[in-house]
Nucleic acid binder design. Structure first.
Lengths: 156, 156
DNA sequence: TATTGTTATACTCTATAACTATA
DNA sequence: TATAGTTATAGAGTATAACAATA
């Protein structure tokens, strides 16, 4: 799977990306994220979803059944963004909206049977993609890398 | 009325993001990148630029004087994207376009005196931002983190 | 014919404001 | 009045296609 070196960046004199740039933390983080996202989406496409949609499925499967707004909060996006995400997932029959009996303004959003299957497969697939992505590191280094990232992001 | 304090919804607290989500590598990388970018842009704003613009200045300062297309290749963006970036930087008087004497289709793009100053200050500022961002890690862990990122991104 | 810079256009992702139906 | 879902819209950021000038 040669994704990164595609395009016209191969023939003739290849103007390399500036080395000062590639030593910047911002550059490294951005490209690591983009590479992992591309790989994840390519692998998840076999199950008819992408990484963002899998994240929604994960959020809906965690904790109690959620309204759209609660799901949006758990995912960390705006409620208007959640509308569009759920439109797609509902159309794929992976989630179902049901009016809340106790508060008819709300929709309770839950996974369908197909949604639970897609979730299971998506988890397994992204686990594999993560392992491949981290392959250049020793197992110990990979664990330390993950731990460092968690310390940087979760802080507080 | 049913009192719903599901999940991490303690009073006065933001509803927590699903914990399965925050253990995913994709989530961690994305949020680390966004956090660092936000901090960098906030700090660089004092010098009238943002992170992307600093990246252009770095690219232009590295190696030989570049055409717009060479600069785009070094930065890893499309040439049409470079046009817009240079429009802004030229308007701020940080770079100058000069028609190439030997090939009049090309523009040679170089830093102005103000551009060199902005570059110097931008480098110093992002160095500081990176240090602060990595502060939760020991110095040794920070170096290992940077090395791991480089191994993951630069791979070949 | 091919290439450089440019413009017009479009697409993705996301957010803000306003509308509707409920509460 | 306030809230949940929705719609319309806008703004980054980036890419593709087409065009003029030049090679």
């Amino acid at each position: 799977m040669i994704v990164r070196l595609a395009d016209g960046q191969r023939a003739g004199k290849v103007p390399e990306v500036s080395s000062e740039l590639t030593s910047r933390l911002g550059y490294l983080l951005k490209h690591a994220q983009e590479e992992l996202r591309a790989r994840s989406n390519a692998a998840l496409a076999h199950h008819g979803i992408d990484g963002r949609e899998l994240a929604v499925l994960i959020v809906l499967a965690s904790g109690e059944p959620a309204s759209q707004q609660e799901a949006a909060a758990r995912l960390g996006v705006d409620r208007t963004t959640m509308v569009a995400l759920l439109d797609v997932l509902e159309h794929k029959d992976l989630v179902a909206r049901t009016p809340d009996a106790h508060d008819r303004r709300r929709n309770v959003v839950e996974l369908t049977a197909a949604g639970r299957i897609a979730l299971q497969r998506g988890r397994k697939t992204t686990d594999e993609v993560e392992r491949e992505f981290l392959a250049p590191l020793s197992q110990r280094a990979a664990e330390q890398f993950r731990g460092a990232l968690r310390a940087l992001v979760v802080r507080d």
